[in-house]
Amino acid sequence: MSETSHGADRRRLSGHSIVRSRHFRYLLAAAVIGLLPLVFTTSYWRTNLILCAINVMLAIGLDFVLGYAGQLNLGQSAFYGIGAYASTLLVTKLGIPFWAAFALGTVMAGAAGALLSLFAVRLRGHYLAIASLGFAVITYQILLNWISLTQGPLGIYAIPPPPPIALPWLPRIPFTNLANFFYLTASLALIVYFLLDQMLRSPIGETLAAIREDEISAASLGINAPKWKAFAFAASSAVAGAAGCFYAPFVGTLVPDAFFVTESFAILAMVIVGGMGTLIGPAFGAIFITLLPEVLRSIGDLRLILYGASVTLVVLFMPGGIMQAWRLVRQRLFFFAEESAT
């Protein structure tokens, strides 16, 4: 019964078909990205914008494997770190061009993710969570203790920004200023979002959901679950690796603490607060979780309590996160619109 009224909602809403079309939404996102650095002109806010773009990538990457394929992967901080360290070391030690290092760092993080998926073949739910957490701890320890390669806790300093892009007929675009760096990371986040969205709207989306819902059924339909889990892990961790490739030249220094396991939980919070199993939800969740502590900065240390409390409240009372809240609001608005029309 509720299903039919839901269907009716959809039909009525299709009146605003332009607003609801995907093309429009991507154009809107591009326009917002274009305007943001013009609105936020201080380097403080522009830095936060870049962090938002990086965290959006981390969150939608995790959502791909968690919200769609249903694999609780707490190794995201490790893949983020692998991407950051691999690309940086390739640039600083081997002198490889940034974009080649970016590609290699992404691939290496993806390969590490595929490797971790071997655990996901045997382990489920909490057990997989613990195994992936172990992987994150081990990776952190390696970054910390392989001093000859990573310089351990001393960190890697003076990481150069990506080289300027020189497109024909256009002025050179340097990435030494924050606005351009934001455009770079946000464009990449938008492209990653688009690619994940496309895959999820293809049979791949149904395949991953089938594995999440019932692996035995999925196998009876010819789905090779281990292979597709490896794919989901690889895609998810490659996205985290790509984010890491941008994090390093953005901050300019790399220390292992940036990729401690707590980062995995922060990314998980973004996905849950946003609403897992939707792609747009975790994107907003990432922005929310990144900016909330900054917005609350004026109230001092109390902000950490408020931050923790608000995340807990969302999980307790709104398990579908921001997306659930949005659906509720839309339904209410819609209900009133209907009332006034009749």
Partner: peptide, 10 residues
């Protein structure tokens, strides 16, 4: 399956 195994959320 005897004990139904649909993808319930789909």
């Amino acid at each position: 399956f005897q004990k139904i195994r649909l993808f319930k959320q789909l």
